[in-house]
């Protein structure tokens, strides 16, 4: 009994060990494998499933069959016009020939190291030989878009003049290639080397392009200057409009009041004329009586206020010394 159990246990252990050591191994989807016998490639397995190998003799190296990402450090690279920019690219690649891959690189770490060299070099080559705008823009679409900034100028007259004032003269240089073409150029340079290592670089894509810190500072300054120029235009336009209104105000105020003065004087004048005519017509009938009448009317008004010393010479006193009069 004891022996039987011991034997059974040993058998189970042996079978399990054998199964573990081979001859079978599982290749998952998304994997590929090299079967090596004493370091020499025997077989390349690319299909998933249960695989066979010679136990103890064969060694299996499994690689990924998937699309693999590569992500390098952002690089500070001068463009053709010597402006330093940070370029951060990513790439996609895969192992297409595991045999070549094994013999040239063997491990994934070394593969990534090699990709660093190849892709960084390609990026540097392409960026330094092109202008900044080629790396930033992709198409000439910006030339067609009417980049007029829509300002809320209200219904103020002369708003068009303001638009012209506020908008910096924008003219964009034409680009010949654009970002995707540059990426394609990088890819072509990098691809030339890749077959030696059994890998295929699927694409290289710039993930982020930005100014170096010094350049950022001066770009900020430019942006601020551009904005304050526009702000200034608004304020000054407002001042101008206000002055215009105040001018209009004074103009109309003066016109209205002087017009009123004119009318008023006209009215007064014609009334005076009418009065004059009325007087002349009436008084003209008897010149002598008018003299007398008017003089009396006037005396009534003025004489009481005089400091008077009268002479008996006056007609008024003609009966003072004689009842018969003088």
């Amino acid at each position: 009994m004891k022996k039987l159990i011991a034997g059974l246990v040993i058998l189970v252990v042996l079978v399990v060990t054998l199964l573990l050591m081979g001859p079978f191994y599982v290749l998952d989807e998304g994997q590929q494998a090299l079967v090596l016998r004493f370091g020499e490639v025997q077989k390349i397995e690319t299909e998933a499933g249960l695989k066979f190998k010679s136990p103890f003799l064969d060694n299996v190296v499994v690689y990924s069959k998937k699309v693999l990402p590569w992500d390098g450090e952002a690089q500070r690279i001068p463009t053709k016009e010597q402006q330093f920019i940070w370029v951060d690219v990513t790439a996609r690649w895969r192992i297409i020939d595991p045999k070549v891959f094994y013999s040239s690189l063997t491990t994934m770490d070394r593969a990534f190291g090699k990709l660093d060299d190849v892709i960084d070099g390609a990026v540097r080559t392409v960026v330094t030989s092109n202008y900044l705008r080629e790396a930033v823009r992709n198409t000439n679409g910006i030339l067609q878009v009417d980049a007029a900034e829509a300002f809320d100028t209200g219904d103020a007259e002369g708003a068009e003049a303001l638009q012209e004032l506020a908008l910096a003269e924008v003219s964009y240089e034409r680009i010949d290639k654009g970002r995707r073409v540059l990426a394609q150029e990088m890819l072509e340079i990098a691809r030339q080397l890749a077959p030696e290592y059994g890998i295929e670089i699927i694409d290289i894509i710039p993930r982020q392009i930005r100014y170096s810190d010094e350049l950022t500072e001066s770009v900020y300054k430019r942006m601020i200057a551009e904005r304050s120029q526009i702000a200034q235009a608004f304020r000054s336009f407002g001042e101008g409009k206000k002055a215009e209104w105040l001018g209009k105000l004074e103009n109309e105020q003066r016109s209205i009041l002087s017009k009123a003065y004119e009318t008023a004087e006209g009215i007064k004048g014609s009334a005076d004329a009418q009065a004059t005519r009325i007087y002349a017509e009436a008084y003209g009938r008897d010149r002598a009586f008018f003299d007398f009448w008017r003089a009396l009317e006037s005396y009534k008004q003025t004489l009481p206020k005089f400091d008077k010393t009268l002479s008996t010479d006056m007609d008024y006193f003609k009966f003072m010394y004689s009842a018969r009069g003088r």
Partner: peptide
């Protein structure tokens, strides 16, 4: 710039 637009409108309104 936004403030300037407000200023502009304010000035015009003052006038």
């Amino acid at each position: 710039v936004n403030k300037a637009q407000q200023d502009m409108n304010r000035l015009i309104n003052e006038g």
